[in-house]
């Protein structure tokens, strides 16, 4: 209010200057995200590839070749330690593939149902259900897999087939991770399916198509790249999923593709190693950073591909 007595040019100058300051602060807030990415890369590389100071980085002690091709993971200090990522990678991919087998049909089915079949009212009821499912914490799903799905569903079912199931197994972990990412696939796919122009549907109906023809032969192919992007995003989410896998999947780093046994994923190894009592600069601890790089690189690559596909898809219809 004091500004009212100043000449107009002065008011403008004062407010401009103080606005510049505010804008700078807001810019710093936004730039923080770039800083975060930089810090992640620096921290991971700084401890895995080259460590300044007295500490030895992970790859100064283990060769990259051994890390990428070794089939044994035994992260202990001394000569007995073996650092091949294959067992952790196979565990991770197994869980993520099982999760995809669950979530891709369920998520896509739900997306088609909600966009092509459900009445607006039904949709209004179903959307929050999926949101709740997505909002349930990972530990809860882990508990559900370990204490319910494994003993009450999988064990009896596989028992009938004469198969033996471990208490900790990749199958139950994969199933709950699949349940967790289903809402993600459903909502992303529904968005892209909805953005398919209405004229395509109307043309198909006019030619005598059934709803199945319209959904499967017209709408889904038209939205295919967007749907694929959703699948990729869900796959990368499944790879990074931690607590459910830690609780239900077990801690045995074995290079196997048998989902009935326990398996250790990259994320569950990291949790396991950080709760252990090894020294902060021991190689078993430093291996967390090497696995961290692998996890970061894999998820980032998949996310970038997914984002690229989605951008191209949007260009087609907008």
């Amino acid at each position: 209010m004091t500004m009212g007595k100043l000449p107009a040019w002065a008011v403008q100058r004062v407010s401009r200057r103080h606005e510049k300051l505010i804008q700078a602060v807001l810019f710093l807030c936004a730039a923080l995200s770039v800083l975060t990415t930089g810090a992640i890369i620096l921290v991971l590389l700084g401890n895995a590839v080259y460590a300044p100071g007295a500490r030895n980085a992970f790859f100064e002690q283990v060769s990259l070749w051994e890390f990428l091709t070794g089939t044994h993971w035994k992260p202990v200090d001394g000569p007995a330690g073996r650092f091949g990522i294959i067992p952790l990678l196979s565990g991770t991919i197994m869980v993520a593939v099982i999760a995809s087998l669950v979530s891709v049909p369920a998520g896509l089915g739900a997306a088609i149902y909600m966009s092509e079949y459900a009445a607006p009212r039904e949709r209004e009821f179903l959307k929050p259900v999926l949101e709740i499912l997505a909002g349930i914490p990972s530990v809860v799903y882990g508990f559900f897999a370990l204490k319910f799905i494994t003993p009450w569903i999988l064990k009896p079912a596989l028992g009938l087939l004469g198969l033996e199931l471990g208490t900790f197994n990749a199958l139950s972990a994969g199933i709950v991770v699949g349940i967790m990412v289903t809402p993600l696939i459903a909502s992303l796919s529904e968005d892209v399916i909805r953005s398919v122009p209405r004229s395509l549907r109307e043309a198909a109906y006019a030619l005598g198509s059934t709803r199945f023809d319209v959904s499967v032969r017209v709408v889904v192919p038209a939205a295919l790249s967007g749907i694929l992007a959703a699948f990729l995003l869900a796959f990368s989410r499944a790879i990074g999923e931690t607590m459910a896998v830690v609780i239900a999947g077990g801690q045995q780093p074995i290079a196997t593709l048998n989902p009935l046994r326990g398996a250790q994923t990259m994320t569950s190894f990291m949790v396991h190693a950080s709760t252990g009592d090894s020294a902060a600069d021991s190689i078993s601890r430093m291996s967390i950073y090497a696995i961290g790089i692998a996890l970061f690189a894999i998820t980032l690559t998949i996310n970038l591909i997914s984002g690229w596909i989605l951008r191209r898809y949007r260009e087609v219809y907008q």
Partner: peptide, 9 residues
């Protein structure tokens, strides 16, 4: 899209 565990590191 970065897994939360990476922020933990």
């Amino acid at each position: 899209g970065v897994p939360s565990i990476v922020y933990g590191i």
